[in-house]
């Protein structure tokens, strides 16, 4: 198992390298000369431009720029934001916890909704609870995040006044207030994923419930609750958990829009601002961090899959 883990980690490194080259290359294709942006008022002065280029190594060949960038990135130095004049790493470390909190809550909400509903609809396959749950899931998948977000703000915040419509309070400053500011965006973010999880769970449960070992469990005289929630669900969770971890990666992408709607100062806002300002180091840094997180989540998914599946654990 340890060998497997090492090998799996070994596989990640080339993936990340290719990703970094891609990110770097895309950067070069973006329109607009960063030196011009940085020069500001003095953009007419060729000497100033040349100096800026030299400072940022923009006058060096691309491979060299890449290697320099990568080497520093490996040491945690993602460069300076050209706009805010702050280290990119600092900006990211400020925003990352916000988005992780949001994503984590969204995932918990998605699991709490998706898995029980999936079990319910599998157990009542073809009967009204199944039909109802599927209709709800379809509605959930087809509701755009921004629309759901705006509707929730209108209903819960504007009309009912239960929750603040926007803003963010850090978790460690005031946990209760923090929860109040993030629960709505987390729900919006988790909504689509919960529908996906529900369908996965339903399919996996239907499969598990048709297996011989479920009949054995019934033959032992176990109650239907134990048969479903222990014998069938335990096996059904194996694929669901793996798919769930991959969905978690997709959550990060969804966070961009949701954070805009609820004006939450997370990763999404950071990257949107950076793209509009052509703040390349920030864009690069954010995309790289997101890529690393996604790859790590895939690894986590594999590890969990291994842990919950005894057949593989002993292989």
């Amino acid at each position: 198992m340890a060998v497997w883990l090492l090998r799996r980690i070994g596989q990640i490194i080339p993936t990340l390298l290719i990703l970094s080259v891609l990110i770097f290359a895309l950067q070069q294709l973006m329109p607009g000369d960063p030196a011009l942006i940085l020069a500001g008022e003095e953009r007419g002065d060729p000497q100033v431009l040349a100096q800026i280029r030299a400072e940022l190594f923009l006058d060096r060949p691309l491979p060299e720029q890449y290697v320099r960038w990568l080497w520093r990135a490996l040491q945690g130095d993602l460069g300076f934001s050209w706009r805010i004049r702050e280290p990119v790493a600092v900006l990211i470390l400020q925003k990352l916890p916000v988005t992780l909190q949001l994503g984590g809550m969204a995932f918990v909400i998605a699991c709490c909704i998706g898995v029980p509903l999936g079990v319910l609809s599998a157990v009542y396959k073809g009967r009204w609870p199944d039909v109802l749950v599927n209709a709800v899931a379809l509605a959930g998948i087809s509701t755009p995040n921004f629309w759901l977000g705006i509707m929730l703000i209108l209903l819960v915040s504007v009309n009912l006044g239960w929750l603040p419509p926007s803003g963010y309070v850090p978790l460690f400053e005031d946990p209760w207030q923090s929860l109040k500011t993030t629960i709505m965006p987390a729900f919006v973010l988790g909504n689509a994923i919960s529908a996906v999880l529900m369908r996965h769970t339903r399919a996996a449960m239907l499969n598990a419930l048709s297996q011989d070992y479920v009949r054995t469990a019934r033959a032992k005289g176990l109650g239907e609750r134990v048969v479903v929630l222990k014998h069938a669900l335990r096996n059904a969770l194996v694929p669901v958990v793996t798919l769930g971890a991959i969905e978690l990666g997709r959550l990060l992408a969804g966070a961009v829009l949701t954070e805009q709607i609820f004006t939450i100062p997370g990763f999404g806002k950071l990257i949107v601002d950076a793209v509009f300002n052509r703040d390349y180091p920030v864009v690069q840094g954010v995309v790289m961090v997101v890529a690393v997180i996604t790859v790590l989540l895939a690894l986590l998914a594999d590890v969990i899959y291994l842990l919950v599946n005894p057949r593989l654990r002993h292989a």
Partner: peptide
Amino acid sequence: EPMTSLNPAF
């Protein structure tokens, strides 16, 4: 079917 009648997870 002895191969499939036991639960693989326990």
